[in-house]
Design a protein around this nucleic acid. Structure first.
Lengths: 205, 205
DNA sequence: CTGTGTGAAGGCTTTCACAGCC
DNA sequence: GGCTGTGAAAGCCTTCACACAG
């Protein structure tokens, strides 16, 4: 009876979540699959199929309750309560992400940053402390951190990944241009900016 | 005879490209599908199928020539010659990307940045000039820019997208948390950091 | 014998068509 | 009538099995 949710469906839930939050801000309390799908850039049937994995959430002839659906998706994604996250590698990109407000708004909090050069100062504007790598294992264990963001040069990414995985990290958002080898119980999402540009480059020819 | 290349294959080409460049740096001139696949994090058969779309590039019993394959993929992706790119929205994330060296290394050059607040100063360290939005249309046309990176707040992204598409932009790398509506001859790749984290959050439950 | 190229099979996602409920 | 839920069909991508070349 336990059906597995397709990975792509999980990804789209985030899009729906974002659209629903906008609807909520506009005091709209009911939405049809057609309207929500359009706002999220998908087809109505796909949206219905995605939502159907989690039970009968809609009302036939009427649509979906915005509040209830938001709550449900939040639960499914596990963002209903604030997730603590650490960031490793405080270079250009890392500093920017520390200042980037988008995470906190969506249920994530960067609670600490780490860097190989421990003398790295906290980027101005950021409220997050930057530590040396020495105590990272202890930090992860004590605070039960599960998610790490890696904004490191490619040649040290694997080494650092090994370290944090051993300390208990279960998920990595990897910005380094490297394919990380991790145990299969650890999830890695890669964000490869150069690859995205190359992809665009191909399609405009 | 003209077969269409799967979108996912195009994306993986970037991974192969990256791996090949490392091999080249190490003066390795031949590589098997097994070795290259492992370095790129895919299965050997998939790699062979991907490469077969572009002709018989390998030698049976031997493997692929690193130089020739690198050249071929560069041509296919359209990164053989330097692509000029503009960046719009010089906030935290935009500034970081201006300083981020990863693009230039892979055949892209950010030739100019634009911001709605035209008094925005150039981020320290960056060599790229920041302009107001006034002359952006002219700039795009005169320099034949095809790719734009959007690092803007979600609520202005659509408006700016309309503007640049009208001026001739054909591809957008969108960091704004918004679904952009564009003509179908324009390609959009979304990088949604919050969505990536939510995705991870789901899989560690 | 080693390692690529490729039709066929298999698996996963999306789309369709329509039944079911308000 | 309006709109959701869902089995079936279609489409797409990955994996397999093996032919073929060096």
């Amino acid at each position: 009876m336990k059906v597995t949710i397709p990975r792509k469906t999980v990804y789209r839930l985030s899009l729906y979540y974002r659209s629903l939050q906008r609807l909520r801000a506009n005091r709209i309390d009911t939405v049809s699959s057609a309207a929500l799908a359009k706002a999220s850039g998908v087809k109505p049937t796909q949206l219905r199929k995605d939502l159907a994995y989690f039970g009968q959430l809609g009302v036939r002839g009427l649509g979906y309750g915005v509040d209830a659906l938001t709550k449900k998706i939040g639960e499914v994604l596990g963002t209903a309560c604030l997730q603590p996250v650490i960031l490793i590698g405080v270079g250009q990109l890392g500093s920017a992400l520390l200042n980037y407000g988008g995470f906190a708004r969506q249920g994530f909090e960067v609670v600490a940053a780490f860097d190989l050069q421990h003398k790295k100062v906290r980027p101005k504007g950021a409220t997050v402390k930057v530590y040396s790598m020495d105590g990272i294992g202890e930090f992860i264990r004590k605070k039960s951190i599960k998610i790490a963001i890696l904004t490191l040069p490619g040649h040290v990414a694997q080494e650092v990944a090994n370290l944090v995985v051993e300390s208990g990290i279960q998920a990595i958002l990897n910005f380094a241009p490297a394919i990380l080898q991790v145990p299969e119980n650890v999830v890695v999402n890669n964000v490869d900016l150069a690859a995205e540009l190359e992809n665009l480059s191909y399609f405009i020819q």
